[in-house]
Design a protein around this nucleic acid. Structure first.
Lengths: 341, 341
DNA sequence: TTGAAAGCGCTAACAG
DNA sequence: CTGTTAGCGCTTTCAA
């Protein structure tokens, strides 16, 4: 049973293919009985118009592309991306869009795939996430006609993006630790992108606002992986922090491991707060206190922004900053008087 | 700068659009100087033919769809899918295919999306993974013209699929435990699909082949999540196994947690083998001995099978069983004579 | 309110 | 070897 066409449906209903097209596209001025008749045939046959010629004539494929340019290791390990894809898929489904995902295994492949994307014009728009400092990707798309939305604020202004309130979240986390009574609060920071800088800024500002000097020894650098968090924690340990804020959960999990190895109990000997609220945060031992980022919602929102870009209403670029909230679990507790030795 | 067309390239090169098309598609009988001239214009302008009309005329979109029908929880937590997508993307890139990913957030959405996929005929073929017993998906695609490849053997015969050697892997793992000197070897099994049944079969056969009776008390059931592994391990503990084979790594991680809570040391008091070799297996405490499945390769191979289906050479259905290997890490060790009390 | 016809950008016969 | 022409299945004028 081969695929039907408008023409054939028209024949079955005794109308022209134009009329069938109108019925499908909810064109208002059709005689009701004709509409009914055509609709019946459509329902009986389960007809759906082929999307390719539709795209050809409308120059809209209804396909949105998603690029995750992170290195292999990250995509494999970081469930952040799983949540994100999930949210983006949701946004697509709601808006009858198809999601095409582009992943690379080498720089050369990245280059080729990007060129193909812009060259063949299959997608209506792109969502890019991961390393927001990938200049090649940004350059190529900004110089193309393809609308772009980033997940995570890029350095480049003039780009539409959605991000969580990085500064605010970090500030909240740090302030919470301060309120718990801690004074030597360390941070596992990253320099990957603007978002991570904002988290560092939030941390510093919270300290400053509470008259705690920023101690560079209590700042260690990671790259968002659990492994890097582990290493960073070990670096910082000699400087005897009494609490830690990790710029993401994956690294916080690494911290937890480093602390376990060093026989430092959490939360008895050290409090720890993460950022993201991955599923793993809940499963950690003990469950991780963290800043809950609505990753899935970010994904949805990215699609919505893209859609607005495509229908170009309003000024561009578009920005959405989503709020986040502190989720208190098992890795934090107030300073105990007897532990002040 | 709007998108160029064949016609315009032709004008620039002083030839017809048909000739340009021929140059692009490597048609052999073109005068070399013409080919060169056209190619120069193409290179200068960076022209790439639009993929939509190409698809229209060739009735090949070069888009392959991927469905991951697992419940929310799984996709979020299980990096198996991340590895798999990564492999599938690799297969697509190699073959100049675009990967479109379909995820669902409700049964209704699943239904709608599936109908849209088959109805609009955008994709050339589908790869389906996750719960291989989803009859709706299988039914719909088997009754459509859309070629289908499953990742993981389905119950339904007559479907092409790629899978790891589940039986063999389980057999190897169990035999290894036996060779280590264990006699009361338990298993965390699942009933999700054929693959999991094969793993159970491999386990049983290894026992039988070494004259160890299968003890139903040492079989507990999970659903591939870490949480279910945790619960299953707790169920089995009273029956005092001395070693465990977990049907996947995620559940093995759950086992590890249950054992830690029960103050059972691994590997001193209990040996444990997983299945998959996820990145987390390496990071576990202690690093997990496991059956290494080349998940990424499975993804690649699924694409290759689909391609063969599309070019319909050879008989159908197509099957690929990929080998796997035991990776010995920190959760297994030989029975110590003094621990035999 | 509907049908006929043009055309989206490309490929593939078919002439020449 | 290359250009002309006819479509792929759909939407959208334009007439009627």
């Amino acid at each position: 049973m081969k695929r039907l066409t408008l023409e054939e449906i028209g024949k079955l209903a005794g109308v022209s293919r134009a009329t069938v097209s109108r019925v499908i596209n909810d064109y208002p001025f059709i005689r009701p009985e004709i509409r009914t008749r055509v609709q019946e045939i459509i329902d009986q046959t389960g007809f759906r118009p082929n999307s390719i010629p539709r795209s050809l004539v409308s120059s809209r494929s209804n396909i949105v592309g998603l690029i995750i340019p992170s290195v292999v290791q990250k995509v494999f390990t970081d469930p952040y991306f799983a949540s994100l894809i999930y949210g983006i898929a949701q946004g697509c489904n709601r808006n009858n869009l198809v999601l095409s995902v582009y992943l690379f295994h080498s720089l050369e492949e990245k280059h080729n795939v990007i060129q193909t994307i812009v060259g063949t014009g299959l997608v209506d728009g792109m969502i890019v996430t991961g390393d927001n400092r990938d200049t090649e990707i940004l350059d190529v798309f900004l110089n193309s006609q393809i609308p772009l939305v980033m997940v995570g604020e890029p350095d480049h202004s003039n780009v539409s993006f959605v991000d969580t309130d990085n500064y605010g979240g970090a500030y909240t986390a740090t302030k919470y630790l301060i309120d718990l009574g801690f004074q030597r609060i360390g941070i596992i920071a990253t320099e990957i992108n603007k978002s991570s800088e904002d988290r560092l800024r939030g941390y510093k500002q919270a300290l400053l606002d509470h008259n705690i000097a920023v101690d560079e020894h209590l700042i260690a650098w990671g790259n968002y992986t659990a492994e890097s968090g582990y290493l960073a924690m070990r670096e910082i340990l000699p400087y005897r922090p009494d609490a830690m804020f990790s710029s993401n959960d994956a690294m916080a999990l690494g911290c937890l491991r480093a602390l376990r190895e060093a026989n430092i109990r959490v939360p008895e000997d050290m409090s720890l707060i993460g950022f993201d609220d991955l599923p793993q945060a809940l499963q950690a031992e003990p469950p991780l206190t963290t800043i809950q980022q609505t990753i899935q919602e970010s994904g949805c929102e990215a699609v919505e922004l893209l859609l607005r870009l495509l229908n170009d209403d309003g000024p561009t670029p578009l920005r959405t900053i989503l709020p986040n909230t502190l989720i208190v679990r098992g890795t934090t507790r107030a300073v105990q008087s007897q532990s002040n030795l």
